[in-house]
């Protein structure tokens, strides 16, 4: 017998989150016990906000917003080209190539960049050989490396939903638009973009949410400068073994993600409302029409 959907939702989503929220009000009693909840307080939140990791959170938000935007900017033209210009046979091959990195563990993929970007690695060597740089390029352990790493790691999550919506978009839509006098730019803005909106939203959420919580990319490529909130939260759980503080930080991270999504969501809704109002046509009153 099928369980009601809310049971599923409760077990796999709500309960774990509620547990984290509950822990965030606890404290760490001694070094051998990561959490105690016999006394509940906001102490962990106070501690969380009083520390340098507020910096890390704002840096994380920057990295994830820039990273998500870059993913969209790179993925959209690619997905559009793939859906509209590439023959179905090559489309499969190219989509396969997009997905191939996913067959490799996330960590290993990221470690690959460690080799590519190291000062003794191929990127740096090539730049030096071509005389574009006189010294080894120190790309690793910078924020830029993390930015690059997250774009690489999450790009496919943007490409796939975009491709699916753009592929489903009847080419006749664009032709109809051009036929009615809109040039390519106007067609893109008035037809392709609004019709691809569900895919764009899906891609943005699919990339932004895990990217904001990512810690592997920052841990491997970031060094001291490319720190991200995920690393901070993880180290409270694994190194400091202070689950209360870690949980409080996790709750703040979740709130930050939801807040950002809400702000952008409201922004998008406002834009859509403006577009709709500007598009609205007032018809002159019609005499009662014969059927």
């Amino acid at each position: 017998m099928a369980l009601p959907a809310w049971v599923w939702f409760l077990c796999f989503f709500t309960l774990p989150v509620l547990w984290i929220v509950y822990y965030s009000f606890g404290y760490k009693p001694d070094i051998y016990h990561p959490i105690a909840t016999d006394k509940l307080s906001l102490g962990s939140y106070h501690e969380a906000f009083s520390r340098a990791f507020v910096h890390v959170f704002s840096q994380t938000l920057q990295i994830s917003i820039i990273g998500t935007s870059l993913c969209l900017l790179i993925a959209f033209p690619f997905a559009y080209w793939l859906a509209t210009r590439v023959s179905p046979r090559w489309r499969g091959v190219l989509l396969g190539l997009v997905v191939v990195p996913f067959f490799v563990n996330f960590l290993i993929r990221t470690v690959g960049w460690l080799i590519l970007l190291s000062p003794a690695g191929p990127v740096s060597s090539l730049l030096q050989r071509w005389g574009l740089r006189s010294e080894p390029l120190h790309l690793l352990q910078t924020r830029g490396a993390v930015q690059l790493g997250v774009v690489y790691n999450y790009l496919a999550l943007m490409i796939l939903p975009l491709f699916v919506t753009l592929d489903r978009l009847d080419p006749a839509m664009r032709e109809a638009s051009k036929d009615l006098g809109a040039n390519r730019v106007k067609t893109f803005r008035q037809i392709t973009l609004p019709l691809a909106a569900p895919g764009i939203v899906a891609g943005l959420l699919l990339v932004f949410i895990p990217l904001t919580g990512d810690y592997i990319t920052a841990l491997v490529l970031g060094g001291a400068k490319g720190n991200m909130a995920g690393v901070v939260v993880a180290s409270q759980f694994t190194i400091a073994q202070d689950w209360a503080l870690g949980a409080a930080q996790a709750v703040i991270l979740i709130a930050m993600i939801m807040g950002t999504v809400a702000v952008f969501g409201l922004f998008a809704i406002a834009i859509r409302a403006i577009v709709r109002v500007s598009r609205r046509i007032t018809l002159p009153p019609v005499a009662e029409e014969a059927v």
Binding site: R51, A224, K225
Partner: peptide, 22 residues
């Protein structure tokens, strides 16, 4: 030696890591 300062020491260190990225 692991003593009463331990938890504070860990948090000082983790905070240093956070500060390094700022």
């Amino acid at each position: 030696e692991i003593n009463s300062a331990f938890d504070r020491e860990v948090q000082i260190f983790l905070n240093m890591k956070n500060a390094a990225g700022a």
